[in-house]
């Protein structure tokens, strides 16, 4: 399972890197979103991979090894929300740039031929 997760995180992040190096804003934002998904998965995995273990302990006196680490899950939740907000902000900015410059190039102008 670790291998599958590692490969998928790598593939998604790598695609994201390729996309943010492209010249159009749409590619850029898609790349950033892919990268943020990959990072979220990565944070999740940093709490170690467990199957079938709940993250929340019902009573104080339990064996902690029976439960998943809840903290990375909390971190992922926060990271998703923040990533969502900043992506939305960037989208607004992209639309503004498109309207003002008439181009969807990341430099705000078409490259000279």
């Amino acid at each position: 399972m670790e291998l599958v997760l590692a490969i998928s995180v790598g593939v998604v992040f790598g695609s994201g890197i390729w996309l943010i190096l492209r010249p159009r804003t749409f590619q850029l934002i898609t790349g950033l979103m892919l990268m943020s998904y990959a990072v979220n998965l990565f944070i999740f995995a940093m709490g170690r991979l467990w199957v079938g273990k709940p993250p929340i302990t019902p009573t104080p006196d339990v064996d902690p090894s029976l439960f998943a680490d809840p903290l990375p899950q909390g971190l992922v939740l926060t990271a998703i929300v923040i990533g969502f907000a900043t992506t939305a902000l960037y989208l607004v900015m992209m639309i503004g740039a498109r309207g003002l410059s008439g181009s969807d190039h990341v430099d705000g102008e078409e490259p000279r031929q």
């Binding site: 943010i20 804003t25 850029l28 950033l32 990268m35 943020s36 990072v39 990565f42 944070i43 990271a79 923040i82 990533g83 900043t86 992506t87 902000l89 960037y90 900015m93 992209m94 503004g96 740039a97 003002l100 410059s101 990341v106 430099d107 705000g108 102008e109």
Partner: peptide, 21 residues
């Protein structure tokens, strides 16, 4: 400002991902 801001935001979004990693 739009031209500069676009790069500024993109770079900082990418840096935030590094922060998380």
């Amino acid at each position: 400002r739009i031209q500069a801001g676009m790069q500024y935001i993109a770079i900082n979004l990418a840096a935030s991902l590094l922060f998380l990693i």
